[in-house]
Nucleic acid binder design. Structure first.
Length: 277
DNA sequence: TGATATGTTATCTT
DNA sequence: CAAGATAACATATC
């Protein structure tokens, strides 16, 4: 579901489309989905939309507050421009719409979230900027070096896949890209994190960066059961390039062995038992 | 009907 | 005490 590439796709589109827009109304259709007083946002003008790991950050002009959004598993941010068509109005808000922002030019931003795990939150700008989360490197940040990854991996005996998914250590990787990255690096997801040597760590580092960048290039992944759509309601195409994710039973592209599916930390895990050691 | 899916966090167990 | 394991959250789909 939304991992760094999906969130980055949405961020880029929101940044363009919301630039300079002034909020006139915020409707909260489901209390759990919005934290803070929505009235605070009325009259606020959007300056910039940024991202840290899987969190979308919305900045306003001259405001003490900002908004952060986490889509969790099924969150969507859908934008309908200045003169919404009849079709869109009929479809949105949908059964899953949790929050609606309306702008001065009548454009609307819908926050849909089927499973209601995601949230939209008003936070104090200074406090947020000071938060220690910001110091955790994203996979595509400068700070995410092979050396950093090596130190992180050395500190745990857990299966390497779980350490890569740990957002307190590395930001942005989720279950889709971690499976593909481990395949690319030819490393078994079950391997004890601290058992990887420097050569394997180097391979893993470039593999992770590579698949995440590919994901961004293809506008994210929208597999059969994926709820990911971008700001314009369209899916991404990375699913056409999956290496092992959801390919259990199919032949490995390298050796022809059937891809296996196991459970690790309660999550679906896909790998080639022959190539990944 | 019950298993399954996913990101993160809370809580339990070594 | 900390690391690791697992349950919980909400809902649709098979």
């Amino acid at each position: 579901m939304p991992e760094l590439p999906e969130v980055e796709t949405i961020r880029g589109q929101l940044d363009k489309v919301l630039d300079g827009k002034t909020i006139t109304e915020v409707e909260v259709l489901r209390a759990k989905s919005f934290l803070g007083d929505p009235r605070i946002l009325e009259g606020k003008k959007i300056r910039e939309v940024k991202r840290k790991a899987k969190v979308i950050e919305i900045y306003f002009e001259g405001a003490r507050e900002m908004v952060i959004v986490h889509l969790k598993m099924t969150g969507q941010m859908v934008y309908v421009g200045g003169h919404p068509t009849v079709d869109w109005i009929r479809e949105l808000p949908s059964k899953h719409t949790r929050v609606v922002w309306t702008f001065k030019d009548r454009a609307k931003l819908f926050f849909n979230d089927m499973r209601v795990f995601g949230w939209m939150k008003i936070v104090d700008l200074d406090e947020y900027e000071k938060g220690k989360r910001r110091t955790i490197p994203d996979v595509i940040d400068e700070g995410f070096s092979t050396e950093y990854l090596f130190t992180v991996l050395k500190r745990s005996r857990k299966p390497v896949k779980l350490v890569l998914l740990d957002q307190d250590k590395i930001g942005g990787i989720g279950n889709i890209y971690v499976n593909d990255a481990l395949f690319l690096a030819r490393i078994n997801p079950l391997r004890a994190s601290n058992s990887l040597d420097d050569v394997e760590t180097k391979r893993l580092h470039s593999a992770v960066v590579k698949v995440i960048k590919l994901g961004i290039k293809y506008g994210g992944a929208s597999a059969a059961d994926e709820k990911f759509v971008n700001v314009f309601g369209l899916g991404g195409t990375y699913q056409k390039h999956f290496l092992v994710y959801q390919k259990n039973g199919q032949k490995c592209s390298e050796c022809g062995t059937a891809i296996e599916k196991i459970k690790l930390g309660g999550r679906g895990t896909f790998y080639c038992p022959n190539c990944q050691v």
